[in-house]
Design a protein around this nucleic acid. Structure first.
Length: 266
DNA sequence: ATAGGCCTGGAC
DNA sequence: GTCCAGGCCTAT
């Protein structure tokens, strides 16, 4: 579930729920979770208030009144579950931020791959990230400049969060399909028109998903009502031309595309 | 660029 | 049982 649109939605929920409240306790319910959040770190934030919740790419940052920050990354399966006073621990709750008023912000994640990290005041809580995929800061000149410094096929390149923040494996395939670009095209072979199409397609895909995720987001992380054009549609007819969708593996991850819709040379 | 690791659950 | 998964890191 969690690429930029889904994280945006989850962040909105958590923001309305947690900002203005004070952290009374942080409980960790899976040992793998201690790799990113050791017990001492979980203890250190007690008494801190959540003053702001920021989403950046697929990350969320809980800015605390002391200047410290908690950075959260959902990875493959993470999500928030909001616990009202007296609520039972949700299934797959891995970390719970217990807040004033008796509520709890629960990180649920069946695979326990999500991360929560504590950062001291003045320390950058996030790695180097490119412009947000859904904003004007992400534009064709930027992407062209990035591609000039890189090599290799365009689809894995789109997943590099330093190039553009927030795109994941699903929306990378979706955007390339919309732009009619072959995912195997080396980035140095994309002309400026193709790059412009790609930037436009990324923004359209993001905007649509953001608009829909508010309605179709399920607590278990599934987004079943979302209808993808190519993702997970191997051998099914392309919605544009009917040709069976092709699945290949790039950088160890599935890529879906339509071989006939793709424009020659891009 | 690829392989393996981290984890669990669902599909087959 | 096997394979796969919307992410990302490290090692080769």
């Amino acid at each position: 579930m969690p690429e930029l649109p889904e994280v945006e939605y989850a962040a909105g929920l958590a923001r309305r729920f947690a900002v203005g409240r004070t952290i009374e306790r942080v409980s960790v319910h899976h040992r793998a979770q201690r790799r990113s959040l050791p017990a001492a770190a979980a203890r250190r934030v007690v008494g801190d208030a959540v003053v702001r919740l920021e989403r950046r790419g697929k990350y969320q940052v809980l800015h605390l009144s002391s200047g410290r920050a908690l950075a959260v990354h959902f990875r493959m399966n993470g999500d928030w579950e909001l616990m009202e006073p007296g609520a039972a621990l949700p299934r797959h709750a891995r970390v719970v931020v217990h807040l004033s008023g008796g509520v709890g912000l629960a990180l649920v994640d069946s695979r326990a791959l999500a991360t929560v990290t504590l950062h001291a005041a003045g320390e950058a809580p996030l790695p180097d990230l490119g412009p947000e995929a859904n904003t004007d800061a992400f534009d064709a000149p930027w992407l062209a400049a990035w591609f000039r410094k890189r090599r290799g096929p365009v689809k894995p390149a789109l997943l590099d969060q330093r190039a553009v923040a927030g795109i994941g494996n699903i929306y990378a395939s979706e955007a390339l399909w919309l732009a009619r670009i072959d995912p195997r095209t080396p980035v140095n072979r994309l002309d400026s028109r193709a790059i412009s199409r790609l930037v436009g397609a990324v923004k359209r895909v993001m905007a649509r998903a953001i608009a829909r995720s508010a309605r179709y987001y399920n607590a278990d992380g599934s987004n079943s009502a979302l209808r993808f054009n190519v993702y997970d549609r191997e051998a099914k007819p392309c919605r544009r031309c009917g040709t069976p969708i092709t699945r290949i593996v790039q950088a160890g991850r599935s890529t879906y595309f339509c071989e006939s819709c793709v424009r020659k040379g891009a």
